[in-house]
């Protein structure tokens, strides 16, 4: 089981000697992902999704809280122990081109993790790399290519193949579709479904695209300003409780007709204001955009409360 317990991460924007702006990227997030589950994490750009992903794979160190992978603590692990825990969880980056060394060939990229953990013979390594490449739907001839010689879809496939080489149990996918165009997105999405069965993976799928999350995930967590506001099973999505989740759903329906995204505009505007006075509202961070909110909401932070099995909501009004 993959567990995050009350994770906090604050970034400090240092402006020389004058003022320190604190950005609470992740603010008290707890979640648990069962083996075999596909856990979707959704939220707009800048709500702390990527930071949460990096915390969960151990790339960032949490200010408070802990990450548990099968009962061992990732955030406290050091040296050999860290290497062993990390083998179980891998991250797929948003932009595969930036996530791979551009000066070496795909073959060298693919064999790097194998070199780190095993002592295979050259031939053995080659066979393994080839089989992983075939698993993600690539021809073995890409081994000789450099990353810039591949298409976006091919790159993301290589990135997936590389993260599979260590046979991890958990795969954190940090917006793996965001850098691809729409036709390729569908292919990769289907590939993810196949790989999950083939390698018995557990996904933590992070996205701002509700469609993709709906397609892939069985549990969906909605994140807003560093906090998880609602966790619900996919089939309950239409009956979502939290006002923010409903806002996201509405925006999705509107988007069917027109590309104009009122939500993102509204939130972008809200962000600008919130950037200045976000700390001054001690309560629910969504209160200032919420039509149900009252004085109580903006003064007290709502905690996630279980309303049904596998369904948690953090809201004062809608419970």
């Amino acid at each position: 089981m993959l567990k995050a317990c009350d994770l906090h991460k604050t970034y400090c924007q240092r402006s020389f000697l004058i003022k320190h702006d604190l950005v609470k990227a992740v603010d008290g997030v707890s979640l648990s992902v069962m083996p075999g589950q596909t856990f979707g994490l959704i939220g707009e750009t800048g709500c702390g999704k990527s930071t949460l992903a990096r915390l969960m794979v151990g790339l960032e160190h949490p200010d408070a809280g802990m990450v548990l992978i099968d009962e061992s603590r990732l955030d406290r692990a050091k040296g050999r122990q860290l290497r062993d825990v990390r083998k179980k969880i891998q991250l797929v980056f948003q932009d595969p081109y930036l996530a791979m060394d551009s000066r070496i060939t795909i073959w060298q990229i693919m064999k790097e993790p194998l070199d780190n953990f095993f002592q295979f013979s050259e031939q053995d390594e080659q066979d393994r790399v080839a089989s992983f490449l075939i698993d993600v739907g690539l021809d073995t001839s890409v081994m000789k290519a450099y990353t810039h010689e591949l298409s976006g879809g091919q790159r993301q496939r290589v990135a997936l193949a590389r993260s599979l080489t260590l046979l991890p149990k958990y795969l954190v996918l940090d917006e793996p579709l965001a850098s691809l165009d729409v036709s390729v997105q569908a292919q990769i999405l289907n590939l993810l479904v196949n790989l999950k069965e083939r390698f018995e993976l557990t996904y933590i799928f992070i996205s701002h695209d509700l469609n993709a999350v709906q397609h892939l995930c069985d549990t969906i967590a909605v994140m807003f300003f560093g906090k998880i506001v609602e966790v619900l099973p996919r089939f309950e999505l239409s009956r979502a409780v939290h006002p923010y989740t409903n806002m996201l759903l509405e925006s999705l329906e509107r988007r069917e007709g027109q590309r104009e995204d009122w939500l993102e505009q509204a939130l972008a505007k809200g962000h600008e204001e919130a950037g200045q006075n976000h700390d001054e509202t001690p309560g629910c961070s969504f209160a200032q955009y919420c039509s149900y909110a009252d004085m109580y909401c903006s003064a007290n932070i709502p905690a996630l409360k279980q309303i049904k099995d596998g369904w948690q909501v953090a809201c004062w009004k809608k419970l």
Partner: peptide, 16 residues
């Protein structure tokens, strides 16, 4: 940069 972070995640020792 991401590709160095990726190498760290894949268990590459700092010397390498």
């Amino acid at each position: 940069r991401d590709f160095i972070k990726a190498s760290m995640l894949l268990g590459t020792p700092w010397r390498r």
